[in-house]
């Protein structure tokens, strides 16, 4: 899923500083699963903002709403009747949400309340870790089911570098050296040879480097693309 972290209240408060009436919109997709922008978090943010503004004797009126998803126009359109009633709208979805909202409602201002961080999963309750960099050319099977593009600080295809120490990355002792993990797994399996051949130069066109990307399922498309 897409993982995000909420921005500081200070930053969000400064975004809506001059507003008197706002809407906070959550999303029932990824940000609900990673407990940052679902129904609960929308209410908590709204309450915290109200407390802060009451304290500043500059009360802020806040309505809340949670969309099924903010990355589908079908759901985004559900705000059509009310979106114009607010000075601004704060989206708690990943970076996709405020953009879909902005594209549909051109007159309204949408603020992002979260920082979208990575594609990952929960390794334990309350802890999420990066697993995928969305490079567009998946090769995890070449590395024992582990992605060094996303998980090595240098995205090495031939690691570990000279900074690997006791299974930790040189960047931070709390960061796993993923190449240490890859190598050890291959050693346990007696398949170290899999790693030794020099791999082809990665074609980054399929990644963000090739420009914004688009996926098309022709069987689903009606009319022109």
């Amino acid at each position: 899923m897409i993982v995000a972290d909420r921005k500081s209240l200070e930053e969000i408060l400064s975004m809506v500083e001059t507003d008197k009436k706002i809407l906070v919109v959550g999303c029932k997709g990824c940000v609900t699963v990673c407990n940052v922008g679902g129904a609960k978090e929308v209410e908590v943010l709204a309450s915290a903002l109200k407390i802060a503004r009451k304290k500043a004797e500059n009360e802020l009126e806040i309505d809340t709403h949670v969309l099924e998803r903010q990355c589908d126009n079908e759901y985004v359109s559900q705000l059509g009747d009310t979106v114009g009633d607010y000075d601004a709208v704060v989206s708690m979805a990943c970076g996709v949400g405020p953009q879909f909202l902005s594209e549909m409602y051109r007159e309204q201002v949408f603020y992002p309340a979260v920082n979208t961080t990575f594609f990952g999963g929960a390794t334990q309750h309350g802890v999420w870790e990066e697993r995928c960099a969305g490079c567009g050319t998946c090769g995890i099977h070449l590395f024992g089911g582990i992605c060094p593009i996303a998980r090595c600080a240098k995205s090495l295809l031939h690691g570990p570098c000279g900074g690997s120490s006791n299974g930790a990355c040189e960047v931070n002792k709390d960061t796993e050296c993923i190449w240490d993990t890859i190598v050890k797994k291959k050693m346990e399996q007696g398949k170290v040879d899999d790693l030794l051949a020099v791999k082809g130069f990665k074609d980054w066109r399929s990644a963000r480097d090739g420009g914004p990307r688009r996926s098309i399922r022709e069987e689903l498309v009606e009319g022109n693309i």
Binding site: S8, L9, E10, L13, V44, A48, I51, A52, K55
Partner: peptide, 8 residues
């Protein structure tokens, strides 16, 4: 923590 952040 939340209250601290907003000065309460």
């Amino acid at each position: 923590r939340t209250l601290e952040e907003i000065g309460v």
